[in-house]
């Protein structure tokens, strides 16, 4: 499985509209939306159309859409995209984060969805952490160091620079990723009680825009994913995850549901991937819920 060398990955334009989901993309359209797109498209040269591609791992550039999650799902259902295929858009009208929260963005940021391969057992449960870790590794390789706030918020310099949402439906697992490349929402625009302020991710190559950054990220993540599953057990992965984990030893406020709130200290990761907390000397494992630094 992991031994095979991934085939070359292409960029493709989603040339026809997906009814109700996305407008057709044109090379001019996204370019007009933001100079970074324009620079990327120019650097990429001629981008072929999606046409009758089947079961591919390519990066599909779509026009403005409600959410790349819905576009990607349709493309998976239609047999166009295979695992590690992805969709990127310059603009979303109904971008969503966890629990249908709004994901605030502007053209110039990465707004993409990656089709995830199916995984067995614990690997399936750990997927959010795996993606968090791999994207953090990939971002760190391309710019400033990024850490993962459990389970998969990506922080740099204490600010959230990227977010991930995983949706598992039937046999189709999608990861939506937003990276604040050109713009980060100001604190007052974020929902009340947000965990951490937003910040921008600055790539080492300042000229790189969302499309090329995404291309590099997907390549990193795919290679990392194959290596990880081939070489390590889930338990070993958790050890590795700890090395990129933010807020260890930090005192946080834990919110479980609406009514349960308590303070605890972040200790690490439990064997099933939960957040290990020390609540007044008692060990607590958090599988759902949120933590805010105190």
């Amino acid at each position: 499985m992991g031994g095979e060398v991934p085939m070359t990955r292409h960029f493709r334009i989603l040339d026809s509209a997906l009814d109700g989901l996305a407008q057709p993309a044109t090379l001019a359209g996204p370019g007009a939306a933001h100079p970074l797109w324009a620079a990327d498209l120019e650097a990429l040269g001629a981008v072929p159309e999606l046409g009758a591609a089947r079961h591919c791992r390519d990066i599909v550039l779509c026009g403005p859409c409600a959410s790349t999650m819905d576009v990607a799902r349709r493309l998976v259902e239609e047999g166009v995209l295979a695992p590690f295929g992805s969709v990127i858009t310059p603009e979303q009208t109904a971008g969503r984060g966890q629990l249908r929260r709004a994901w605030l963005s502007r053209p110039g940021n990465v707004l993409a969805t990656l089709v995830c391969p199916p995984a067995d057992g614990l690997w399936n449960d750990l997927r959010p952490l795996v993606l968090g870790y791999l994207f953090a590794e990939a971002l760190s390789a391309l710019g400033q160091a990024v850490q993962v706030k459990w389970p998969n918020d990506l922080l740099s310099g204490g600010r959230k620079v990227a977010g991930i949402l995983v949706e598992e439906r039937k046999d189709c697992v999608l990861a939506g990723i937003g990276v604040n490349l050109g713009w980060a929402p100001p604190a007052e625009a974020l929902r009340e009680g947000h965990c951490v302020d937003a910040g921008e991710f600055v790539p080492s190559d300042g000229a790189v825009g969302p499309v090329r950054l995404w291309g590099a990220l997907v390549n990193h993540v795919e290679t990392g994913y194959r290596t990880l599953l081939e070489a390590f057990s889930p338990t070993e992965f958790l050890t590795i995850f700890r090395s990129r984990m933010a807020w260890q030893g930090r005192r946080v406020l834990v919110r479980e549901g609406e009514s349960v709130r308590y303070e605890a200290v972040v200790r690490g990761i439990s064997a099933e991937g939960g957040l290990l907390l020390d609540r007044a000397g008692r060990e607590v494992v958090l599988l759902a819920g949120d933590v805010i630094p105190v």
Binding site: Q98, D125, P128, L165, V166, K170, L287
Partner: peptide, 18 residues
């Protein structure tokens, strides 16, 4: 059969239950 009944969030992975 196959209709989404509910959705669970676990470690930010949203699982549809059918």
């Amino acid at each position: 059969k196959g209709e989404e009944i509910l959705n669970i969030s676990i470690m930010k992975q949203e699982k549809s239950v059918y």
